[in-house]
Amino acid sequence: MDSADVQRAVWRMAHEIIEANSGTESVVLVGLQTGGLPVSEAVADALTSITGHETEVGSLDVAFYRDDIGLRPVLPEAVTHIPWNLDGRTVVLCDDVLFTGRTIRAALNALSDYGRPRAVQLLVMVDRGHRELPIRPDYVGKNLPTRRDEVVDVHADGVDLGEMLR
């Protein structure tokens, strides 16, 4: 995927969000630190220019909710920023790459500490497969079949697939 492909995927997913939720009145976007943040901002910009009113964007760091603490160092990369009560809102979680699903599991736990959203939906730029939990995205930029040991890198200029450095 090059940057134009990523842009097109962003706009398509923005339209899908509006269609699925009949507008964006109750929708808030929450980007997962740190890779999901640029994704959530890009989608929010697209939503704002389509609907004409500002879309709210927050961020979430799930370090304290991970189940692999002890397997590797887990330090929060940034402070969570969710300044609203989520009761009754529709939260669209945004991340760059969906892999095992464990980050999303942790994010769902974290969200419940902020209130009781009416619904939580999942948006990812790349779904690379290899799920270890029953988690499925609602909006996908691109399905990218990978091997387990490959690395997917999403950035402003597009998406790269590479070998894992050992």
Binding site: L32, G35, G36, A63, F64, I69, G70, L71, R72, P73, V74, L75, D95, D96, V97, L98, F99, T100, G101, T103, V124, R128, T146, R148, D149, E150, V151, V152, D153, M164
Partner: peptide, 22 residues
Amino acid sequence: LGAGSDLVAAPAPEPLEGTPRG
């Protein structure tokens, strides 16, 4: 007690996830 405090003691687990997230 949390993050990585056990890391020094425990051997590295087999294949870590390819990306830091997901």
